[in-house]
Design a binder for these strands. Structure first.
Lengths: 121, 121
DNA sequence: TTCATTGTATTACTATTATAATACACTTTC
DNA sequence: GAAAGTGTATTATAATAGTAATACAATGAA
């Protein structure tokens, strides 16, 4: 799992963990049924307190992304169909966010098209 | 000023105020020398505590976006040239963020091009 | 000068975030 | 059954975020 934590971010650490795991699931790096790293292992890896990771795992389960079982670990619970639609919805949402910001900055669709051309190289 | 606060956001309220004012400056809605609303007025408008708004104003001054003077208010201090370069840098940064996320979700440049075509309509 | 308005500062209180140290119950494996 | 590893729960402490109520000093206009 490619997962880094920015302690200086205004976004709480446990929220960053949630986002990182969601992204991993949506990108297909973690699939339905896959075992997440144990709370203690991930905490050690990220140099966080186990309670902080546990909070993230608890939230992920509450959102229906995973299932936690004492003794056997936490498994991803996102069927392929749902993963696919969530992935597409995420892309659209991110793009709309970008467009909104660009427009509120006073840029035109033409400006954005030119930016895209320039960055692709 | 078009400025809304999301109390449920994990991003602290005073950070939201900072972002909103920065955006207003970068978009040209607020220009160099313009007077910001008074701390008390903005607090009343957003239904926040004056201390929360004051914290945002203090941070904006520390970043060189404005100048606060007891008695006469807070004025934007962003020369037109700097505003222009900041505006362009913000667009590029936002676009790169979007691209990074899209790529980490496993989308190709082709996918993104198609999305742009579809959304523009 | 007087008065209202401005940013600034202080103190107090609450909730959230994060760490820390344990303990407990469940599951798997030997 | 025993042991190791799992998620879960509890209690404590500290820092940050936000609200609340005041007070103070500087500014500008009447």
């Amino acid at each position: 799992m490619n997962l880094t934590i920015d302690a200086k971010s205004p976004l709480p650490v446990y929220q960053q963990v949630i986002q990182a795991i969601k992204l991993e699931v949506l990108s297909g790096g973690l699939r339905d049924g896959d075992l997440l790293p144990s709370i203690r292992d991930l905490a050690k890896l990220l140099k966080l307190n186990p309670n902080t990771v546990a909070k993230a795992y608890y939230a992920l389960e509450a959102e229906g992304f995973s299932e936690n079982r004492s003794g056997s670990g936490s498994r991803v619970r996102v069927p392929a169909g749902r993963q696919d639609s969530l992935r597409k919805a995420m892309l659209e949402s991110e793009f709309k966010n970008f467009l909104e910001k660009a427009v509120s900055l006073g840029f035109t669709l033409e400006d954005i098209k030119q930016l895209a051309e320039r960055i692709k190289k």
